[in-house]
C-alpha cells in the first residue's frame, strides 16, 4: 500500500518545508540578509577594502606618485587604463625622463579586479570609497586621473 504512505510522506515533507520557511519568517526582522541602501552619504564609513573606482591621490602641492611605468596599463586585463606619456627634461636634474601626460581610466570598462592597484610599485593609484558611479552619458565614465598641472613628486623613483 504505497499509495497511503505516499500521501503521508508527502504531507510530512510539505510540513517540514513549511516549518523551515515559517522559521525564516519569524526570524526575518533581526536576521535580514539584505541591507538597506546607504542614504547617510555624509556619515557613512565604507569598509576598507571596498572598491569604488580607481583614483590617483594628490598631495597639497598638486603632486602625485605616478612615475609612468605603465605597470597598471599592462596589468589591466581589459584595457581600462591608458597612459599618455612623453619624455621631458627634468628641471632639477636636467636629464630626460619619462613623465605621464594623462592617466586615462575608463570606469565603464573596469571590472574592479584591483590588479592595477596591486601592480603599482609606488602606490600612485588606490581605490576610492564612493559607490554611486552612475552618470547620464558614458563619456563621463572616461576619467583623467592626474589633475591638470600636476607633476610627479620628486624622489619617488628612488
Amino acid at each position: 500500500m504505497s499509495y497511503f504512505s505516499d500521501i503521508y510522506n508527502g504531507i510530512k515533507t510539505l510540513l517540514t518545508g513549511m516549518s523551515v520557511t515559517g522559521g525564516y519568517f519569524i526570524r526575518a526582522r533581526k536576521g535580514s540578509i539584505t541591507q538597506q541602501y546607504p542614504d547617510n552619504r555624509e556619515t557613512l564609513k565604507m569598509f576598507d577594502r571596498f572598491r569604488g573606482e580607481v583614483v590617483m591621490p594628490h598631495n597639497e602641492n598638486n603632486e602625485h606618485y605616478c612615475t609612468g611605468c605603465q605597470a597598471c596599463e599592462i596589468a589591466c586585463p581589459n584595457g581600462s587604463i591608458e597612459i599618455v606619456w612623453d619624455r621631458q627634461v627634468d628641471p632639477e636634474t636636467g636629464k630626460k625622463k619619462k613623465m605621464i601626460d594623462k592617466h586615462i581610466y575608463h570606469l565603464g570598462m573596469c571590472t574592479m579586479c584591483s590588479l592595477c592597484v596591486e601592480a603599482c610599485p609606488t602606490d600612485a593609484i588606490v581605490w576610492a570609497q564612493n559607490y554611486e558611479n552612475s552618470v547620464y552619458d558614458r563619456k563621463y565614465l572616461t576619467k583623467v586621473l592626474n589633475q591638470p598641472g600636476s607633476k610627479v613628486k620628486a624622489g619617488i623613483e628612488d
Binding site: G31, I33, T34
Partner: peptide, 13 residues
C-alpha cells in the same frame, strides 16, 4: 512584504 520576510529580505520600504 511577506515574500521578503520569508526570504530574509527587507521588502519594499
Amino acid at each position: 512584504k511577506v515574500a521578503a520576510w520569508f526570504q530574509l529580505r527587507l521588502g519594499p520600504n
